[in-house]
Write a protein that binds this DNA or RNA. Sequence first.
DNA 1: AAAAATGTGTCAGATTATCTTACAATGGAG
DNA 2: CTCCATTGTAAGATAATCTGACACATTTTT
Lengths: 90, 90
Amino acid sequence: MKSGIPRRQACFPIRVVMEMTNLSARQIRYYEEQGLIKPSRNEGNQRMFSLEDIERFLEIKKLIKQGVNIAGVKAIFAAKELEKKTDYDE
Amino acid sequence: MKSGIPRRQACFPIRVVMEMTNLSARQIRYYEEQGLIKPSRNEGNQRMFSLEDIERFLEIKKLIKQGVNIAGVKAIFAAKELEKKTDYDE
DNA sequence: AAAAATGTGTCAGATTATCTTACAATGGAG
DNA sequence: CTCCATTGTAAGATAATCTGACACATTTTT
C-alpha cells in the first residue's frame, strides 16, 4: 500500500513545478541559470524536475523571503553538501 | 524527511505516464475512452494523471497480459469498488 | 549621484507536446 | 470470411516550453 515516486526521478514539467511552488517560470529558469538547481531534460529539451528539485525550490523560496540573495542561497546549499560528506561523530 | 505527493493529485502529463507504464498514448487514451480511467484536465485541456491513475494503469497492463479484455478489467475494477464499500467483518 | 549589478516581468519566434478525429492493420471469435 | 476488439499512425489545430532579448524597479558599488 505504498509506492511513492523516487525522490530523484525527474517526472515533473515546469508548469507543475510552478503550481507546486508558486514560482514563475522566469524564476525557475533563473535559479537554474544561477546554478541553484540542475533539472534534467527530456528528448525534446524540456526541463524535467524531481521531487528533490521541488523541495529545493521551496527552500530557496523560504531563504529568499528571509532576505537571503542568490549567492547566499548558493553558499548555504554548498555548506549543506559538505555536511553530508563530512563525519562529525567521534 | 519525506514529503511524497498525494496519490490523487494529478500532476503527470501523458508522456510521463507513457514512460512509467510503457503504454502508448493510444492505449492510455483508449482505456480512458473505455471508462477505465478518468484523468483530470488542465486549463489547456491536456490530461493530467495522478499516482493512483498510474497504479491503475499498471493493474490494467497486468490483466491485459493475462488475457482479460477491457470489459473484464472494467468488471474487476467495479468489483473492487464494491469491496471497499462493503463491510465483511462480523 | 552615477553606474553597475540583482531579480523579475514580458514579449517574440521557434520548437516540442498534446488533443481530436479518422482510417488502417492486426488478430481472435464465430 | 466477417465482425469485433485493440493498437498504430497520420493530419491539422491548439497548448506548452525553450531561448534570447529588452524593460523595470531595487539594491549595491564606485
